[in-house]
Each structure stands twice: as structure tokens, then as C-alpha cells.
């Protein structure tokens, strides 16, 4: 877990407890309750899904739950907005390919 801000001139970050979750089956660490997208970004993962027609890689855009660019498959459920969805222990997170399954 390297890409977290530790020393900041103005801000202090309070983080939840460390949890393990899975990205494409690979175990990763994150902090409970942080948005899934934040945990993935900190772990160096930028590609969250592939577009429907051309299979182009997609990441997040707005990070505040408005643009739907960050939809992923979480615990088998498609179209989860990972910039808002809080991280939980043991979650299975996968890149969504095209439209999500409900």
C-alpha cells in the first residue's frame, strides 16, 4: 500500500482498519470504508472496466458518483459505482466488460 499521502502540510487522514479484498482474484489490501476506487488507485490499478463496443480501457472520471465511468463488478453484481461504494473485507472486485449484469 504505497500510494497513500502520509505527510501533508494541511490535512491529516483518518483511515479505517486494514482489510483484504480481491481484484481479479488477486489479494490486495485497502482500508475499510474507503471507496473501492481509492483502494484500487492506491494499489496502482487504473483500468476499471472495458468499453462495450471497442473494449477500450476505462478509469474513473468524476470520483463523486455522478459520471458512471467507474462501474465495476463487485461480488458478482454489475454496475457498481466504485468511486462511492465503501470497501469491505473479502470483497471480490472485477473489471466490468461492457454492460454489467444485475
Amino acid at each position: 500500500m504505497s500510494d497513500y499521502i502520509v505527510d501533508h502540510p494541511i490535512l491529516k487522514f483518518e483511515r479505517g482498519k486494514k482489510v483484504k479484498f480481491f481484484f481479479e482474484g488477486r489479494e490486495i489490501e485497502g482500508y475499510e470504508d474507503q471507496p473501492i476506487a481509492a483502494a484500487l488507485h492506491a494499489a496502482g490499478i487504473r483500468v476499471l472496466s472495458y468499453s462495450e463496443k471497442l473494449g477500450r480501457p476505462r478509469g474513473f472520471f468524476c470520483a463523486v458518483g455522478k459520471c458512471s465511468s467507474c462501474l465495476m463488478e463487485v461480488d458478482g453484481r454489475g454496475n457498481v459505482m466504485v468511486c462511492m461504494e465503501p470497501l469491505r473485507e473479502g470483497m471480490q472486485v472485477r473489471r466490468q466488460k461492457g454492460r454489467g449484469k444485475v
Binding site: 497513500y4 499521502i5 487522514f13 481509492a38 468524476c62 470520483a63 463523486v64
Partner: peptide, 13 residues
């Protein structure tokens, strides 16, 4: 704003 959220709210570089 997304970048700002990532760094200032989530504390992610």
C-alpha cells in the same frame, strides 16, 4: 475535482 477528491478526501496520491 476528481483529482482533488482522491488526494484531499481519500488521501491517495
Amino acid at each position: 475535482g476528481a483529482v482533488q477528491t482522491m488526494m484531499n478526501v481519500f488521501g491517495v496520491v
